[in-house]
Amino acid sequence: MLYFARPSLAAELADQLEGRAVFGDAQNGLFLAAPRRTGKSMFLQHDLKPELASRNVLVIYTDLWSDQRRDPGDLIAEAIARELQQHLGVVAKTARKAGLASVTIAGTLKVDTSGIGKIDGTTLVQALRTLHETAGRPIALIIDEAQHALTSEAGETAMAALKSARDQLNTPAEVALMLVMSGSDRDKLLRLVNTNGAPFYGSSIHKMPTLGKGYVDHVTALIEAQRPELKPVDHLTLLEAFQLFGQRPQFFHAAIGQALNPLESTSGEGFEQGVLAAAKEKRAQDAAQMRSDYLGLKPLEQAVLWRILAVGQNFRPYDADALAFYRQQCAGLSITAQKVQAALESLRARTPALIWKSARGEYSADDAAMHAWFGELQATGQWPPAAEPEIR
């Protein structure tokens, strides 16, 4: 499938980042939340980045999930350092090769050439200031999966440094540093903005618009152009399937390809129902997997995960209410803080991990889809899930 561009959304967000919106705080940082595999990263790289570049903005993009073995703080610093190295000029590059400790740029800015790329709040701020001065234009730093920065002290330090750089570089008359933070889990991303100690306290999390009817109409037009014998394609059925797939193009594309495969008996006429059936099957499989994961846990692990899903960002693993909840769900078991800690570590150690932990000891479900699964079962009175009776 050809890429579905969203230029209008990109232009609107770029206006906000430049401070052109009458109301809003995007010039202080734009925080976007969208589920995994819904086109967020593609939009940031192929729509927003080119739009900002067309406005003479220097754009730096880094994905903190690109290498999960690396410290997220290092990934942020290195992305900035790579861009800075390209703008330092011949004199600075020569100085670095010669092993000079520092170099003065434009007669005023003294840069520690050995420090660029290392995690230090002052160094990161200075690197951004120098980059702004040498490039002579605004900078936009796009950090994809930004919530991952909270998993390390270096990542948190980098976030604090970016906030400091924003405050120092931006003025009421000029937005010199634009920050875009995206995340696949709103609950985790909130931890960057919702407490007094959060680096971007006071900023808002925005739900990024997911691909919808316009995208399905685009796909429908492509199918009709390539397979005119299928006209008219039932776009309403395809829209229903796309929604059941959680607005995730990857699975939607695969189902369409399968349904239209000439080797499949369901290809051709009525393929839309095949796509819809695949969507329903995928949804059922996902729910069954989460159910199996939950039922495979020990009683205390189940109680801890239940508590995390129920209270979200208000989860406190060892407070009186939490301990009372665990004891209620695990009647007859002795519950201590040490046993709760062991349960938390066990949930984190699973493959894939069921819970996520920040450097500050905050916990959340690792996969945001589990929150939706929990909410659906709770709303229909089917929580907690029970084991299937054995067939004899």
Rank of each mutant, 00 (worst) to 15 (best):
G107H: 03
V111I: 13
V175E: 05
S41W: 07
V90P: 09
M181I: 02
Q247N: 12
E388M: 15
L124E: 01
D217C: 10
S204C: 10
P385I: 13
A53F: 10
D293Q: 11
A372H: 11
Q328F: 15
L177W: 01
H206T: 14
L44V: 05
D286S: 09
G115Q: 00
A176D: 06
F23M: 13
S152E: 02
I105E: 02
A322D: 07
L84E: 01
A379M: 06
F315Y: 08
L88S: 07
L58A: 07
T134P: 04
T108C: 14
A158S: 11
A176I: 15
R55W: 06
Y318K: 10
A288Y: 05
Q289Y: 13
G117W: 06
A33D: 02
P50G: 07
S164E: 15
T134A: 04
L309N: 05
A127S: 06
S292Y: 11
Q147F: 00
R70K: 09
K339M: 09
H235Q: 15
G312V: 07
T351A: 08
T123Y: 08
L32E: 08
A101D: 08
G197P: 09
K231V: 13
R350M: 00
A368V: 14
G202Y: 09
R6L: 05
G361H: 03
R129Q: 15
A353P: 04
F200D: 05
I205Q: 00
A369M: 14
A77Y: 00
V180G: 06
E376T: 15
Q226V: 13
K282C: 00
E390G: 00
D321G: 14
S164D: 14
K282H: 08
E376D: 13
G274N: 01
E18D: 08
G361Q: 04
G89L: 06
R316V: 14
